[in-house]
Amino acid sequence: MTVTGAPVVEITGLHKSFGAREVLKGIELTVSQGEVVCIIGASGSGKSTLLRCVNLLEQPTSGVVTVLGVEVTDPDVDIDKVRTHVGMVFQQFNLFPHRSVLENCTLAQRQVLKRSKEEAEAIARKNLAHVGLADREASMPAQLSGGQQQRVAIARALSMDPALMLFDEPTSALDPELVGEVLTVMRELADEGMTMLVVTHEMAFAREVADRVIFLDEGVILEQGTPEQIIGAPTQERTRAFLRRVLDPTHVPEVEAPPASS
């Protein structure tokens, strides 16, 4: 699909405002093929908005976003076509509750890629097996645990054979004991060479899986580098303060009030 080494995502001068509130203030970001980039930052820092600007679930106010060589900020872009190559996993799973697990994974394949029923089901089953849910294809989403639902959501996205996967806090809505099964699937995906952009609060995951960690603060990339640099030895005071709050939440010094954010 893309030439190896060519950037999968290229973002320049990205601004996004909701009314008078500017959430993203000039983001520059390039993601290469096979790279796993974790975006961390306080809530309200614009992490999710940045991710959603990549597949245009949010329309950027200004700036250029190029995905797989296609400029998605072009008003005349065929965004549906681009989205078939970009998988997205949501915090709230967003499985289709009126469709079985298997149908969740075949609906868009048949509707959008015009695959035959047999082909779509074969691909769906392969991906359900991949996330360890081969035996649940006949279940309805509400019969599954949160962790299982999120793994189905990943299988659903993978069934479109995406070149890039976006994860928007995929484990934030899960009970703590279910986080591991989802992160395991994501780690396997990363090991297989999938290009991934992950908004997360799981520092252990970022440390072990990410090629690069980005610290987003009040709409700007304050700091980026390898996990060792950003999580291990951050240079910015605000990064250090954030990591202290996340890694040691019961010992937040009272003088260090969190930055005012909406």
Binding site: V86, V112, L113
Partner: peptide, 10 residues
């Protein structure tokens, strides 16, 4: 639900 469907290219 809409976002999930649209993000799949529908």
């Amino acid at each position: 639900q809409v976002e999930a469907a649209r993000s799949l290219g529908m």
